[in-house]
Each structure stands twice: as C-alpha cells, then as structure tokens.
C-alpha cells in the first residue's frame, strides 16, 4: 500500500451491550483514507455510520459500547492501543470532527473566542496573544465577517450557518490530518448548505486534509466526494470511485437507493421504492442483510453473506450476483 494513507481502518467491530442483547452496530468495516481524499460514507439512519465515526475518535458511550475487534491505524499507529492521554492529543489535532447540529455542539455559556482558544491552547500552547491570533485566523479562514468582533460573541448571537462556520473553524484551527464531518449541513437551509459545502471543499483543497464525509444524501456525495462507501446494517456493501459508483451502481441496495430519490429532471410519475424496513440489529438475517428487501434475491443470498466482488478499478460490491460462474 502506498504511504500517503493517513487513516486505515481494518475489520472494525463496535458492539453495544444492552440488557436485551448485543447490538453489532459496526460489524466488520474496513476502509482507508489517503491524504487529501474525501470519502463519503452513505447510509440510512441506524446503519452504523455515526457509530463508525465515534469509534474512530474513541468517543463511544462508556459501559454501553465498545470496539471489540479491528485496527484503526492513524499514520501507521493503531490508535485503539494508545492510552487515554495520548488519545486526547489526537482528538482535535490529528482527527477533528464536525457534527450535524451546531446548536448543540457549541457551548452556550462560553464566547466563540473562548471555545476556539480552548482547542488551540491544548495543542499549540503559547502566550495568550499568539493563541488569540490563531483563533482569529481560523475564523477568517471560514469566511466569517469581522472575526475580531466574533471572538467576544456568544453562540446565540449567530445564525445557524454562522454557528456551523465556527464549528468548522474549531475543527480546522489545529490543522488536522483527518476531518470527520457527520451530516454537517443537514440542519442548514439549502442556499446556506451550498455555501458551506463550497467552503469545506476550499479548506480541504488548501490544506490537503482528508475528509470522512458521513451523509444520507447522494447529492452531497456527488458534490463533495472522490470515493464513496455505502453502508447497510453495519457493513459496507459497495465502495468505489464516486463516478464509477454513480455510473454503474452494482449492489441492489445502492441501485434502489439512487433510484428512489426524486430527480430534478423527472416528470410526475411513480418513484421506485424499496419495500420493507432495514432489519433490526437484534434479528439480523443469516445471509445477505439486504436479501429480505432485494428484488434479485436467490437461495444463496438467504444462507451466506456475500464476499466483496471486484467490479474493476477499486470498485467492489458485496453481492452474489457479481460472482463469476467458473
């Protein structure tokens, strides 16, 4: 493998231990991120995409959930084996995160400047003036007007779009290698969403950081990502370069998901639907997890989980219909 891989996740298993049993929310997920790459992790709610993100930062709810297997290599070092103290040096500095709702990710009783300085002082300790300078610079980088004045303002004085810019400023302030963006624009209005996505793309190109972009929206993937991985019920079912997956989706779930979204060019007519619901984690099918909803289901799908089959150029899909008859 080439050495510009910054994050390599291998066979990650994160389980929730509940009174009613074990929920395997992430069940054997592998992917890698190169320097400057934007990877989209797409799936519906409950497919395990956010739990994957929290596992990477080791921010799982204590006692309830644990990563039981796998490796997360950041620049070649397995961060699952590091101490809590070392992990605190990684969070914010090497891996930063932007969450969906800026209303809850900023602390309402501290000023914007205070919250920015906290992160910067942790990773780049120095005289107060330098830290403040760096904080103002971060606000300027996310194109907030009048950054000096913003430092003394509180979250409630800013609009949703501006708050999410502040969250972005905190995330980039320590020049991370990897940014995890978990549905960062879902709570924003459409015209503000476009501004924010353009901003993220600019920041990413300027700093060459890698982004793991978690979303349920294929439009966001089409706009932002180089590669895409589609998750269903705790596993990645299809992955590949973004153009290839859009031109030639091979997993029936990916196909159905793309087809079920109304398109701008469409006339009034019926939409393609995926019948049924995603499975319960407590009662997963034995074979392919999508089999009960799949239009192409065969006997084999019900008994055995398919392996990843290559479709060429790093595009793989876990579906038995791609198995070459020999």
């Amino acid at each position: 493998m080439s050495d510009d891989i910054v994050l390599d996740v291998h066979d990650l298993h994160t389980h929730f231990f509940l009174r009613r049993g074990v929920v395997k929310a992430v069940d054997g997920v592998s992917f890698s991120l190169r320097r400057g790459e934007v990877l989209g992790l797409v799936g519906e709610s409950g497919c395990g995409k956010s739990v994957t993100a929290l596992s990477l930062l080791r921010l799982l709810p204590k006692g309830a959930a644990r990563t039981v297997q796998g490796e997360i290599e950041l620049e070649g070092e397995d961060i699952l084996k590091t101490s809590d103290r070392e992990m605190r040096q990684i969070r914010g500095r090497k891996i930063a995160m932007i969450l969906q709702d800026p209303q809850t990710s900023l602390n309402p009783v501290f000023s914007i400047g205070n919250q920015l300085r906290e992160t910067i002082a942790k990773h780049f300790p120095g005289p107060g003036g330098t830290v403040t300078q760096r904080a103002i610079e971060a606000l300027r980088n996310v194109r907030l007007a009048a950054p000096e004045q913003r430092m003394d303002q509180y979250p409630h004085q800013l609009s949703g779009g501006m708050k999410q810019r502040v969250v972005g400023a905190i995330a980039i302030s320590c020049e991370p290698l990897v940014m995890i963006a978990d549905e960062p624009t879902t709570a924003l209005d459409v015209t503000i969403q476009l501004q924010y996505l353009n901003l993220l793309k600019e920041l990413q190109e300027a700093s060459n950081m890698a982004i793991l972009f978690i979303t349920h929206d294929f439009g966001v993937v089409a706009k932002m990502c180089d590669h895409v991985a589609v998750m269903y019920a705790g596993r990645i079912v299809e992955r590949g370069p973004v153009r290839q997956v859009f031109d030639n989706p091979t997993h029936p779930y990916t196909q159905a998901l793309i087809a079920s979204v109304p398109k701008m060019g469409d006339q009034r007519g019926r939409l393609h639907t995926i019948e049924g619901q995603p499975p319960e984690f407590s009662d997963l099918p034995v074979g392919c997890r999508f089999a009960p909803r799949c239009a192409f289901v065969e006997d084999k799908c019900l008994s055995t989980y398919p392996t990843d089959f290559s479709v060429g150029n790093g595009h793989t899909s876990a579906c038995w219909k791609l198995e070459k008859p020999e």
């Binding site: 459409v190 015209t191 969403q193 476009l194 501004q195 996505l197 353009n198 929206d217 294929f218 439009g219 966001v220 089409a222 706009k223 990502c225 973004v242 153009r243 859009f246 031109d247 979204v261 398109k263 701008m264 060019g265």
Partner: peptide
C-alpha cells in the same frame, strides 16, 4: 443552483448567494 447534483459530473452552482 443550490440543489445538489444527481451525478458528480453535473455541477450546477452558477448562483451562490
């Protein structure tokens, strides 16, 4: 213009407010 593209080759944000 703010509608996200259906395909990576269709980038149509001519007017960004």
């Amino acid at each position: 213009s703010a509608v996200l593209p259906d395909h990576p080759d269709l980038q149509n944000d001519e007017i960004v407010l």
